[in-house]
Design a protein around this nucleic acid. Structure first.
Lengths: 335, 335
DNA sequence: CCATGCCGTCGAAGCGCTTCGACAGAAGGG
DNA sequence: CCCTTCTGTCGAAGCGCTTCGACGGCATGG
């Protein structure tokens, strides 16, 4: 429309008949301003459709009001959960009046250094941290406020949050055993995921195994690739080697549909012949046939909490080093 | 380590024994600087590990070197593709020395207005634009450089890019008909997606129907919800109503696995009894059983091209109003 | 009734960078 | 040999905002 010279705080001040600093204080609330002046300023802001310049604000206040979200970029990642997570981070950050800069891990440590050093962001949210993640030491050294999703082996001086996967594995085992199953098994992620030392996969497995042992129930465990054929033979092998298995836990979102297909092909009915519990998002569980009893990965919760932790750190509050989110089992038809 | 007062351009200038402006010109290349001076400055930059302050740069140059990626946030979205897309946008943007601000559509028009007006970003990438998307007019009015992924009905003055879904639909039909099928069908997205006027779904359907008509082959079409049961009855209905159907196109990523399961349950072998072609990402097609002949949604290409278009616009170049990416059919075992 | 405080507002000094105009000195032309 | 034209560099003026210190004016208390 108009030639649109952008509106500055000086324009607002002039329009409202006050000093620039007064406008600033009205907007930030950092000093008391009389109700009448405040209102006049606010009206001018609205009238002129004023939006503070982000760069100038960042420069003067040393706060960019932007946080970085660092995504992993690896094989075997499960994109939908990542996405849900990202969305919840953005939504929550906005509630704190912050924006989110999206980064991929493939720029490596330099990327983190760059955004931190350039004051592009005030803090970092690092996803999918592995057991021996090089970014752990880096973050410690960087001194930039950060929150990690996932647990590195050495979490000293870091703030970490994740679903309690050990508990999730145990919950699945307990549920099956409680339902009377006397031999159970876990079908996991592709083996590369375990080898990489991805914390959550190993922790689920440990929790599962431990719970089974506690009840004295034999528990087989098998990694599982994600193609239909691979899943079929994995299931066949498993049931061959452990014919008494009647309870199955699946911790592999991409394979979960195939597992049901494989069981169908092998003539095993779910849940009559084999009970299945999955660890996956609700929508996957719901649209499976039959709908799966499942423990969900509460991506949204994790995202929200992670942002809250980071905001607390930005405000100089001290926060717990580790936060574990409790898993929740939803009973559907498969177990 | 150190108390870490951040390094400024003045520090670099002092260290190199030149003026601040000289450092700036070395870094931006906007004026000729002698080789020796340039080298000295560059050395100092490295020695001090200097990173320009993003806010100051943005303020002075009126270029933030950040673009916004606006994601949709709707039911029936398919997250993995979105994610792939986002990753490719970030990667490409980095090649142009830009960062990416992630926004969700749920902040609405105000969100776009806000980031644009505050100069937080230099341009906008808007994903998953619908036929009658309110953001079309908004962008036009905003005057901020932008690129839309998807085609609104009125694309005057906008820059749009997408996969040529009509062509993709036609390609599937052509492939099946070329293989000798005399009655074919399309299993599509959930009906809500069509009703919303999501361009790509409708265009696929149109391309498919048209191609079939051109060959004089009857072609049924059916939207499809994504739960296993719904898919089963959809497939059953379809095959019941059109018993001669031997070629099936599936344009629904979440349902594609279930379709194969349903066919198996109905006793139809793939590809002996029914040939199946899917429109979905390669990894989904590959890990299906049997691996699916498919047309992939080239999320990465779209992302890369979209960024390139946006960068061209930021540089003041003029770009084509519409860009259509050609689909590619990959033959696997299912058709 | 004057000293004391507080409240609300203002002016000005930066924040770190880009960019414009100026200006030495070298190079080239008449 | 002087005047012009480049080249390479410098200094300074902002960019739009936050924040600090200052300062009138009003109420309070002695």
């Amino acid at each position: 429309m108009s030639p649109a010279r952008t509106v500055t705080i000086a324009d607002v001040a002039r329009h409202a008949g006050v000093a620039v600093s007064t406008v600033s204080y009205v907007l930030s609330g950092k000093r008391a301003i009389s109700a009448t002046t405040r209102q006049r300023v606010l009206d001018s802001v609205r009238a002129l459709d004023y939006h503070p310049n982000a760069g100038a604000r960042a420069l003067a206040s040393k706060r960019a009001k932007v946080i970085a979200l660092v995504l992993p970029l690896r094989a075997g990642m499960n994109l939908p959960v990542l996405m849900q997570f990202a969305v919840s981070v953005v939504t929550t950050a906005r509630q704190y009046d912050h924006d989110v800069l999206l980064m991929t891990a493939d720029e490596g440590p330099d990327g983190l250094r760059r955004v931190a050093a350039s004051s592009l962001v005030d803090g970092l949210l690092v996803m999918d941290v592995e057991l021996h993640d090089p970014r752990g030491p880096l973050l410690r050294q960087l001194g930039e406020p950060s929150v990690l999703i996932g647990f590195p082996a050495d979490r000293d001086g870091l703030t970490c949050i994740d679903l309690d996967f050990a508990r999730a594995g145990a919950l699945c085992a307990d549920h099956l055993i409680g339902a009377g199953h006397r031999e159970i098994a876990l079908l996991g992620a592709p083996s590369v995921v375990y080898e990489r030392g991805t914390g959550y996969a190993g922790r689920t497995l440990a929790g599962f195994t431990e719970a089974a042992a506690r009840h004295g129930v034999p528990a087989a465990v098998r990694p599982c690739e994600e193609s239909f054929d691979a899943v079929c033979s994995a299931v066949r092998d498993l049931l061959g080697a452990h014919p008494g298995t009647t309870g199955l836990v699946v911790h592999n979102e991409a394979a979960v549909g195939h597992v049901l297909g494989a069981l169908r092909m092998l003539g095993r009915r779910v849940p009559q012949d084999v009970s299945v519990v999955a660890i996956c998002p609700d929508d996957v569980a719901e649209r499976a046939g039959p709908p799966l009893t499942s423990v969900l990965v509460p991506a949204e919760d994790v995202g929200r909490q992670a942002v809250k932790l980071l905001m607390a750190k930005l405000d100089g509050e001290s926060v717990p080093q580790s936060t574990l989110l409790q898993p929740r089992l939803t009973i559907r038809e498969s177990a």
